[in-house]
């Protein structure tokens, strides 16, 4: 007997008794009527109990479902918090590590004839931020970081993801951007930051500038797996530091150079100065001319 059946032992006994009565019904009508009334009473009680138990069972299920939903909500909130930078509210590095592999896969799996499937990595750093912290203190530095991230976020497309990469360095990841978008976005960010007056309280404002480096994935479309996403981020970071060395308040984008079209296999080394020297990369910059870049 199943455990759930055993709690109905008494009811099962009555049912067996009913079967016996049906097989050998008493001949006297009065006796038959008495058995009939007795069984009807049992049936009525069983029906009432069934209705009660169904209602109680529904309540228990509702309680469990609600508890499960509360847990799921809490889990989502925790996940969201673990992927969010506590100060600025933008995504953190852990979020990037979690979502980037799928993004890269979807870029590599997509048929390029259907449109531009790519990822753009744009690295932004606030110029002379250490001085802001040293002069005004960390609370003011934090205020600037929050306003800066809000400004960058507003300047990006909704589909772009802003990540606080660490300190005053931010990374924008853009899906499927057209060729003109990286330079347009970089210039929009550079000029908006330059023009912005950061409100640091007590009626004071601060002017800031930023430097930007960017590179796209896949870097060499004929060799889509050639540089991995982390190497592309590193390239964007190197480009950012070239922008810094070249005077700051500037952006530098890395693109495949002329050498790619000559059929040779690109080098595995992704040091920008060497790649540039061998014409594996070329630069696009707000400074107008490659010659103004300082490595």
């Amino acid at each position: 007997m199943k455990p759930s059946e055993s709690v109905y032992q008494h009811e099962l006994e009555i049912q067996r008794r009913a079967e016996v009565i049906c097989q050998n019904p008493p001949e006297q009508f009065e006796e038959l009527l008495k058995e009939y009334l007795g069984l009807t009473q049992h049936y009525t009680k069983l029906l009432k109990n069934t209705i009660k138990l169904t209602s109680v069972g529904d309540g228990a299920q509702r309680k469990l479902v609600r508890a499960r939903n509360d847990l799921l909500k809490a889990k989502r909130r925790l996940e969201d918090a673990s992927f969010t930078d506590a100060l600025t509210g933008v995504r953190n590095r852990r979020f990037l590590l979690d979502f980037i592999d799928n993004e890269v896969k979807s870029v590599l799996n997509n048929d390029s004839e259907l449109g531009d499937h790519n990822l753009l990595f744009l690295m932004i750093d606030i110029d002379h931020f250490k001085q802001v912290n040293d002069t005004y203190g960390h609370p003011v530095g934090d205020t600037v970081l929050v306003q800066f991230s809000n400004l960058v976020s507003a300047a990006c497309r909704k589909s772009d993801t802003l990540v606080r990469w660490g300190g005053e360095e931010f990374l924008v990841v853009c899906r499927d951007s057209d060729q003109a978008y990286p330079a347009k976005l970089a210039e929009r960010l550079r000029s908006q930051v330059e023009q912005n007056e950061f409100d640091i309280g007590e009626g004071r404002v601060l002017k800031c500038s930023c430097s930007i480096g960017f590179a796209g994935f896949p870097f060499y479309p004929p060799f889509p797996g050639y540089f991995g996403w982390s190497q592309i981020i590193d390239m964007a970071d190197q480009a950012l530091y070239i922008a810094k060395k070249s005077g700051r308040n500037a952006w530098v984008g890395v693109q495949p150079g002329k050498q790619v079209h000559h059929g040779a296999t690109p080098p595995t080394d992704y040091h920008l100065k060497r790649l540039y020297g061998d014409k594996w990369v070329q630069f696009q910059t707000s400074l107008g001319d490659d010659a103004r870049l300082v490595f």
Binding site: S4, N49, G57
Partner: peptide, 10 residues
Amino acid sequence: NSSSSKCLLD
């Protein structure tokens, strides 16, 4: 659970 409910009824 449901079996316990039945026992409570009893």
